[in-house]
């Protein structure tokens, strides 16, 4: 498998702000790659430099063996970009939108209509884009990005402002696109999205990549405690502490009795022996824990 995208030591400054500060990574052909980070981490700028919308101050980008800057009309037909906002022509129907975009790449109308059914929008073909729901608009915009069958698809926060159903629905669509052999690069600040979709993720903050690897490996590397919860009052706190051992912490907040331990197996066995497993919930660390540990918890608008 070849390298679809190679990014080396990318730098971009806006005045005093170091938006991208020495970013390097590569994306394999057919990989689903995620760039995570809080708002203002530099992920959108990084993506825009790779897409060829901005020029890097220094560093090199290679997409499919070509440089995206300056505007490279041999590369453009091979990449598909779905933009953050739903960028549609005003007052056109879904079918008219995708046919217009298709014509820019010399793709016939028939194929554009087919792409509409690939994303499950054939019954909304006659609806104006302004009247589509958030999920439908997002599907249409992905269809417009895919209509010329690009080798690489870039998605910038595709599930922002979607309801949970629409989000799951979109994930299925993105998985199918990736399974068809396309390389997909997405930015998101939804950790569950990255965990569920991406083969590898890069966690960015302050313009730098802090961690890079498969989500599961990042979570395991965190070595955080496993949380086990029971209904409050199942055990008294001292009894629970005795059961869990001195290394674990025990909290009863009146709703749940929660253990946090690095050795969940003996504790679970002990609870099972006392027949206390009813209503139990066990939660390991998630990508969110990794993310928060890396980027801190303070709020940034």
């Amino acid at each position: 498998m070849g390298q679809t995208i190679i990014v080396q030591d990318l730098q971009k400054r806006y005045g005093d702000v170091h938006a991208v500060d020495g970013v390097s990574f590569s994306v394999e052909q057919g990989e689903f790659f995620g760039i995570l980070g809080p708002n203002g981490a530099g992920k959108t700028t990084t993506l825009e430099i790779i897409e060829g919308l901005r020029e890097a101050d220094s560093g090199t980008v290679e997409v499919l063996g070509m440089s995206p800057w300056p505007r490279n009309s041999r590369l453009l037909p091979k990449i598909g970009v779905q933009l953050q906002a739903s960028s549609f022509f005003e007052r056109l129907t879904a079918r008219e939108q995708i046919r217009t975009f298709a014509s820019l790449y010399g793709i016939p109308a028939k194929k554009a209509d087919d792409m509409l059914s690939v994303v499950g929008m054939e019954d909304k073909a006659g609806t104006r884009s302004e009247q589509l729901s958030g999920g439908q608009a997002q599907r249409l915009s992905i269809a417009c990005a895919l209509v010329h069958e690009p080798e690489v698809l870039f998605l910038d926060e595709p599930s922002a402002s979607l309801d949970p159903q629409a989000r799951r629905n979109l994930w299925d669509l993105l998985r199918a696109i990736n399974d068809a052999g396309r390389t997909v690069v997405l930015t998101t600040h939804h950790l569950d999205e990255a965990e569920s979709l991406c083969d590898r993720v890069a966690i960015m903050d302050h313009g730098k990549i802090l961690e890079l690897g498969p989500p599961a490996a990042l979570v395991r590397g965190l070595d955080s405690a496993t949380h086990i919860s029971l209904a409050a009052g199942t055990l008294t706190v001292p009894a629970a502490q005795e059961l869990a051992g001195p290394d674990a912490s025990v909290v009863d907040d009146g709703v749940s009795l929660t253990f946090a331990t690095h050795a969940p197996a003996p504790l679970l066995t002990a609870l099972a022996e006392r027949n206390l497993l009813t209503g139990i919930s066990v939660r390991g660390a998630t990508l969110e824990d990794v993310f928060l540990q890396l980027t801190g918890r303070e709020y940034r608008a």
């Binding site: 453009l76 037909p77 933009l83 906002a85 739903s86 820019l104």
Partner: peptide
């Protein structure tokens, strides 16, 4: 203005047109 605001200009820039 609206094409710039709605990022259609950007979309067109990314198409081989």
């Amino acid at each position: 203005v609206t094409w710039r605001q709605k990022k259609i200009l950007r979309r067109l820039r990314l198409a081989p047109v």
